[in-house]
Computed example of a mutant assay.
Amino acid sequence: MASESFEEIVEDFEFLEDWEDRYRYVIDQGKEMPPLDDALKVPATKVDGCASQVWLHPTIDGGRMYFDGESDAMIVRGLIAVLRRLYNGLTLKEVLAVDARVEMGRLGLNDHLSAQRSNGLRAMIERVRSVAQAG
């Protein structure tokens, strides 16, 4: 139950046959994402469990979740952009219904990220889910 925006990534990945191209695609997604305001890079928005510095700034507007993020690692910034496309604009109930591991698995990310990156991705997903649960 992913967003339409995420489905576009899935379709794009079908045309990218090797992992290097997919890796570049994810990095490019991060480059296109607007930078997070430095004022939002505070302990409350920092995601623990990531090897790199990661901040997620979620907002709930009209019962729908949106978030911005930042990382000092290009691939992680790209993963944030992919997660934004997975979750942004979904209702809180829809956010909780998304099986992010399955959805990210459709991109082959589960098989191609290092253990540290996988742990960081799980930490980001858990942060998004916890905000939706509290919302």
Rank of each mutant, 00 (worst) to 15 (best):
T45S: 10
I27T: 02
Q29N: 04
V47Q: 02
F15V: 14
E17Q: 14
Y25V: 06
A39P: 07
D48V: 10
D48G: 13
V47F: 02
F15T: 15
S52W: 00
V47H: 00
E14W: 10
P35V: 09
G30K: 01
P35T: 11
L40M: 06
G30Y: 00
K46Y: 12
K41Q: 11
Q29H: 06
C50F: 05
D12M: 14
T45F: 07
F13N: 11
D18P: 09
E17F: 13
E32T: 05
D38K: 12
D18Y: 06
F13K: 11
T45R: 10
I27C: 01
C50T: 06
L16E: 02
A44Y: 11
G30T: 00
A39E: 12
Y25M: 01
D21M: 10
A51N: 14
T45G: 01
G49P: 01
K41C: 08
E14Q: 15
D18S: 13
D12W: 05
Q53W: 09
D21R: 05
C50S: 05
E32F: 08
K41G: 07
Y23L: 09
D18L: 12
E20N: 11
D38G: 09
P43G: 01
L16S: 04
E14K: 15
Y23T: 05
V54M: 09
T45E: 09
L36C: 05
Y23V: 07
P43D: 03
A39F: 12
D28F: 12
D28P: 03
E17S: 14
G49A: 04
D21Q: 10
P35I: 06
K31H: 09
C50E: 03
M33H: 09
M33S: 11
T45Y: 08
V47W: 00
L16D: 00
Y25W: 02
K31R: 13
K46A: 14
D12Y: 06
K41R: 13
D38P: 12
L16R: 00
D37W: 07
D12H: 12
F15S: 15
E32R: 13
V26D: 04
R24H: 03
P43T: 01
L16I: 08
